[in-house]
């Protein structure tokens, strides 16, 4: 059974070119959810100071609505049995879609992968991919 834990960080919504130009600390996993939307795991508002300066109307808020867990290759293989779409070959990559019928995302890196979903879906996701 996977244990999904709250992923803390910040959510940044800003002009896409501003997000394109933003550099994040190495410990931060910056997940580009949409062209104008990033979930930066383990980032703080200070890390997005450049965004706020470049786009004064950006939305920068603490994000605590996602849960997730890191997967090794074997666990990832197990998870991919529950998806009907193709994961890209390049890394890193963020893929978004249904996992076992639950809206979820997978952050793929060469070393490991992060399975995450919105908190209200956590119970179903855990049950279905157990």
């Amino acid at each position: 059974m996977l244990a999904l834990n709250t992923l803390r960080g910040i959510r940044v919504v800003a002009a896409p070119h501003v997000l394109d130009a933003t550099l994040w600390p190495t410990h931060v996993a910056a997940l580009r959810i949409a062209p104008d939307d990033i979930f930066a795991i383990e980032a703080t508002e200070a890390d997005a100071a450049g965004v706020a300066a470049a786009d004064p109307h950006s939305i920068i808020v603490d994000e605590h609505g996602f849960v997730g867990c890191w997967l090794d290759h074997q666990q990832l293989e197990h998870i991919t049995r529950h998806i009907e779409w193709h994961a890209p070959l390049h890394r890193p990559a963020l893929v978004q879609g249904y996992v076992a019928g639950v809206p979820a995302k997978i952050w793929l890196t060469n070393e490991r992968s992060l399975l995450l979903c919105a908190g209200p879906y956590a119970a179903d996701l855990m049950e279905r991919v157990a």
Partner: peptide, 12 residues
């Protein structure tokens, strides 16, 4: 429109 939109339904 020059607006930004963020859905916080499941975060809050």
């Amino acid at each position: 429109m020059h607006v930004h939109i963020l859905d916080r339904t499941m975060s809050l």
